[in-house]
Amino acid sequence: MNNSPIQFSSDAPRLSVVIPVYNEEDGLNALFDRLYPALDQITSQFALSYEIVFVNDGSKDRSAAILAMQYEKRPDVTRVVLFANNFGQHMAIMAGFEYARGEYVITLDADLQNPPEEIRKIVRQLEEGHDYVGTIRENRQDSWFRKSASRAMNHLRDKMTRITMTDQGCMMRGYHRRIVHLVSQCEEANTFIPALAYTFANKPIEISVKHEERFAGESKYSLYQLIRLNFDLVTGFSVMPLQIFSILGMLLAGAAGSLFLLLLIRRFVLGAEVEGVFTLFALTFFLIGVMLFGLGLLGEYIGRIYQQVRQRPRYMVSAVLEQAKS
């Protein structure tokens, strides 16, 4: 891996904001109305230039057309990357990293749950020398179930991966160019960008940011997709689940041996017992369930190896709207 210092072009902006977009036609104009004024204020406060990199992740509504119109209005600071298909939020961010030119890169969702005005807080931390700025959502505007499940998964992920992120679900984060460069060099087919970036950080920090209700539409992450995302996170950064099942297998083998000895002793002391048959059935079904779950977990790791060795492109870009370089 090449760790040589990153060279910046003299005309490159210092700040790049990367925004993945998927079926957000109802809220994009509201995003534009708040995003550009917020960044214009940051420009004057911190004396830095900016660009916005929108990545349309194969939207099936009018999102691509709305982004194209916005590019026509502000071509000086707007770049639009159009995917040929839907490849997922994290692949959209990876593409945004590839096309972003700034020394600082901030990721932001398009649904306005993270207010664009909070970008100022992240820029301040980056200016103070932090290379990774994580965020924690204040007064989170989600359902009780979603918040409870998120806390449980945060705790589980922290124990398994040793990656400390208080709020893994908040995608509004800041990265120094060095971190972006290292993340872009990783060719993993499945990854979780905030966790991956954290492993490269020398001076990380977490700050609190405001959280609002979605301006329009609903979350693009279903329960199944959230489970898949957490599988990617755990299996991508730790082999502890496999180690847990190895220990569990040894414990169950010991318990099964002890049960066998107990039944053997009872057979000679008390004679044949019909009542124990149903207990054995229950134990058998339990052990079968544990073995099937363990095989499924092993399959998750093997499946990721299979996806990786095929070396297929992680995403396909159909077009990029940007000003021609002079």
Rank of each mutant, 00 (worst) to 15 (best):
G102Y: 11
A64P: 02
G88I: 10
R62V: 05
V53T: 04
V55K: 05
Y104R: 10
R101K: 14
N114M: 11
M91Q: 14
V105Q: 01
V81M: 05
E98Y: 13
I93P: 06
E72T: 12
T78W: 00
M69V: 00
R79T: 10
M69T: 04
P115I: 13
V105G: 10
L108R: 08
E98D: 14
M69P: 01
P75M: 06
E117K: 15
E98F: 11
A92K: 02
N56F: 04
R62F: 07
Q125F: 08
L126M: 10
I119M: 13
K121E: 15
N85W: 08
L67Y: 00
G129N: 05
V77F: 12
R120W: 09
H130D: 07
E72M: 04
E98C: 08
D76M: 01
V105L: 06
A100H: 09
Q89N: 02
V53F: 05
A100F: 08
M69D: 07
I122A: 09
M94T: 01
N85V: 03
L112C: 14
E118V: 10
E72D: 13
N86G: 02
F87K: 05
V77D: 08
M91F: 03
I66C: 07
G102P: 02
I52D: 05
D57N: 15
R124E: 13
G129C: 07
Q89W: 00
R74D: 07
L112N: 09
L67V: 01
T107Q: 11
N85F: 08
E117M: 13
Y132G: 05
Y71M: 05
Y104I: 11
A84N: 13
K73E: 03
E128P: 01
F54Q: 04
Q89Y: 03
K121T: 04
N86A: 04
I119V: 14
R79H: 03
V81A: 11
A65L: 12
I106N: 12
Q113C: 08
Q89D: 02
D57Y: 02
E117R: 12
A110M: 04
A110F: 10
N86T: 09
Q70H: 14
E128R: 13
E118D: 15
E103R: 12
G96Q: 13
